[in-house]
């Protein structure tokens, strides 16, 4: 009958503690603390939420509630090559959804998830301001314009 164990590195715990105390450990500042914490870790895994809960003196269920309420927060680490698909109006009208579906199919993941090998992750973006090139996809630091579903395979191959 062991207790529940959470594993984290000392310096990670220290960082969370500092962020929490910079907001006075006030439960009302939970969203800000999570925001900053995600800025540091890139995402909010369960372990991190446990420590945040403890530092902020709120239940971890509440922390999880906030994390799942705001689409800004994510519990999944970004892949080495994060894929973003613009679903702004212009891209959407020109078939961004079909492109998105193709990425999902090729990678076997949903929006907000990463591939098991940690290589790719998938997110949607609002208008990136390159409507002339719509539909637009960015992978890592590269941008692809006028993407159609049949080009998806080739794009992914570039990152082999």
């Amino acid at each position: 009958m062991s207790s529940i164990k959470i594993k984290l590195k000392e310096k990670d715990v220290q960082q969370i503690k500092e962020i929490a105390s910079s907001f006075g450990n006030k439960p009302g500042e939970l969203i800000n603390v999570l925001h900053k914490t995600q800025g540091v870790f890139g995402y909010l895994p369960a372990e991190v939420q446990e420590v945040v809960a403890r530092e902020m003196n709120v239940s971890v269920a509440k922390v999880y509630g906030v994390v799942t309420f705001y689409s800004f927060f994510t519990m999944i680490p970004k892949g080495r090559y994060p894929i973003s698909i613009c679903t702004g109006t212009a891209c959407y009208v020109r078939g961004a959804e079909k492109v998105l579906d193709e990425f999902k199919k090729e990678l076997g993941i949903k929006v907000g998830e990463s591939t098991p090998d940690g290589k790719f992750s998938l997110t949607c973006l609002r208008c990136v301001g390159a409507c002339g090139l719509s539909p637009v996809v960015t992978v890592g630091t590269k941008t692809f314009g006028r993407v159609s579903p049949d080009k998806v395979k080739d794009i992914l191959k570039e990152f082999d």
């Binding site: 939420q49 239940s59 799942t68």
Partner: peptide, 19 residues
């Protein structure tokens, strides 16, 4: 006890334990 919290938003929101 703090086990339950509302999670998600809109149509998919329910009350559930953490994670």
């Amino acid at each position: 006890v703090g086990v339950l919290s509302a999670i998600n938003r809109g149509f998919t929101s329910v009350v559930a334990p953490a994670f």
